[in-house]
Structure formats: C-alpha cells, structure tokens
Amino acid sequence: MQLTNRSEVVVNKVMTFKERLYFPAIISGLVITVKHLFKKRATVKYPEEIRPVAPIYRGLHVLKRDEQGRENCTACGLCAVACPAEAITMTAAERKKGEEHLYREEKYAAVYEINMLRCIFCGLCEEACPKEAIFLTDRMLPSDMNRANFIFGKDKLVEGVSNDSRIDISKRTNAHRKD
C-alpha cells in the first residue's frame, strides 16, 4: 500500500565515483541551508505579536455579568457536572438584602474555582450553563512558576463592572449562531 507519493524505496546500491567524492553533495547541502538564510522567519514573537486565532477559539474562561453589572452565575453546579476534567468547584451562597446590585438572582457562587492545570478547554461548561454566565474567550492562559497560582478564583474569572473592563465574547457567540 502506498501511503504517500514522496516515499522512496531504500536501495543499497554502490555509490558512483561522483557520489563518493562527497563534495558535490556537501556543496548542494550548503546551498540549501544558505537559501534558508533569506527565507521568511516562522517565529511569532509571542508577547509582542499574537497569532490570529479562530473566532470560536476556546481560551481562558470568563464569568459574565449582565448589563447592570450583576453576576450571572447562580451556582447551579451544572458546569461542574459537565466538566469532563473535573476542574470546576464552587460553593453556593444566598444573596443577602442590599446585595441585589451584585448578583442577578437569589443564589450566587461565593467561591468559584477552575483548576487550569486540569482544564482541557473543551467548552462543555459553557454549553451546560443555563444562565449564560460562563464563556470561553480568545485570551491565553498565562504561564506561571507555581502550581497553586493555576487555581483561578473569582478574582481572576469574573469580568469587571465598568465598560472597558468587560470582556467581549461576541465573536464566539456570533460564530455559533446559525442563521
């Protein structure tokens, strides 16, 4: 069975005099390498220059707020159930009086943690969420020297209240919409 059309059958043939001189082969090799001096570099200088990602790219998670700046999450736990890597844990709490501007419904997640070392960025949490609270974004997970720092709590997951600290997910949601 032929898998590719680039395969060559190995033959143990005796080399000709020209081949045994080696120098023509060495020079042609040197020409090949020196041609690469003038080729385009494949390197992407990451922090300065970010590779374009697909609109449906599944990167770092975000916990959304609604238009009034209240957290969408109600700590129902469906995301944690859906998570195949068991990366999500949460503790639910009841909304007190006077906290209505913080949480959209009566129940909210007091603790919401995603272990980023476990997470496989499959996006099932997003699919499971009935409240449109968790989304995956096009942001990258930053690297760190310490394993403990990879457990992302609410401080890192929930988006800001002000307009410029909101995290845009329209690209991803629009790509999913079928019309």
Binding site: H36, R41, T43
Partner: peptide
C-alpha cells in the same frame, strides 16, 4: 536560527 527559519536569541 536563521538557517532553520527561526529568529534566535533576541
């Protein structure tokens, strides 16, 4: 790096 289409230490 250049011969391998990379950038090298920068």
């Amino acid at each position: 790096a250049f011969l391998q289409d990379r950038v090298g230490p920068d």
